[in-house]
């Protein structure tokens, strides 16, 4: 079966976001951009399923600017077989993304679509669930284990109280949580090889999807700053401070 893996180009995990002084957003000029870490976990999981003989082909997809090609090349270097860039300079919301992925799923007929549970820029945590609604497929969100058995997949999910396992009929949607796997680094030979793997460029219009935003960002501001308090000298002083707050056994 084929696996479709959407990947997003986002501000690198290690870069501290800076709010623009005009309040229109976060400054992305001249900062390091990388693949969304949860999507990286999705690519890794797809590769492992291919290595186990469950998957036959991995297609990485990204919706974004021309530079999102770099993100797709990273997925190809890790082990994806081919890539589709749906190129647009507009910010595309999860609902429109899900519509694009639905159109691609209709064309490619994957057995699984593995997405990151959320992108670390907008923190929406929506696209996978929305794609599941539009395709009418089952969803295993926040996955920490994925086991394909015959025509179904068992997904262990990280939920508030612990773990939960659901059995989903294939085709299905999986969204990744942090502990699903540890993504590999692409080796230099694989990075070279990735340069010649196929990468198609499309536009949202090719899939008949209107990406006009439904939600307008009025402004973006800094969160309230918390200031440092005091350092206490020893445990006795800490105990006294805590008792003053009414904290004791």
């Amino acid at each position: 079966m084929k696996i479709l893996v959407p990947v997003k180009r986002v501000l690198d995990y290690n870069v501290k976001p800076r709010v623009k002084s005009d309040g229109t957003g976060v400054d992305l000029a001249n900062v390091k951009m990388s693949m969304n870490p949860f999507d990286e976990i999705g690519v890794e999981e797809a590769i492992r399923l291919k290595e186990k003989g469950v998957a036959t082909e991995i297609i990485a997809v990204s919706v974004g600017p021309a530079k999102a090609q770099e993100t797709l090349r990273t997925a190809l270097a890790m082990g994806a077989d081919r890539a589709i860039l749906v190129q647009t300079d507009d910010a595309v919301e999860p609902l429109a993304l899900a519509k694009i992925f639905k159109a691609i799923a209709d064309a490619e007929q994957p057995g699984l679509v593995i997405l990151g549970k959320q992108a670390i820029d907008d923190d929406n945590n929506q696209t996978g669930q929305m794609l599941a609604a539009l395709t009418g497929w089952a969803q295993g969100t926040f996955a920490s284990a994925v086991n394909v058995e015959g025509d179904s997949v068992n997904v262990t999910r990280e939920v508030d109280g612990g773990l939960e396992t659901v059995k989903l009929k294939l085709p299905a949607i999986v969204t990744t949580d942090l502990r699903l796997n540890e993504p590999r680094y692409a080796s230099l030979p694989n990075i070279m090889k990735a340069k010649s793997k196929p990468l198609d460029t499309k536009s949202p219009a090719d899939y008949g999807v209107d990406t006009a935003p439904r939600v307008k960002t009025v402004k973006v501001s800094e969160p309230p700053v918390r200031s440092a308090g005091v350092k206490v000298a020893d445990v006795d002083e800490l105990v006294a401070k805590l008792k003053a707050l009414g904290v004791h056994s």
Binding site: P94, L95, D123, N124, Q126, M130, A133, L134, D160, V215
Partner: peptide, 23 residues
């Protein structure tokens, strides 16, 4: 915005063809 809410609400939003506003 619990794991249950986050699992269900976007599926509802897409069925209604609306964007969700999260958290």
């Amino acid at each position: 915005a619990t794991t249950t809410g986050k699992n269900i609400a976007p599926r509802v939003a897409a069925l209604l063809d609306v964007m969700q506003i999260s958290e």
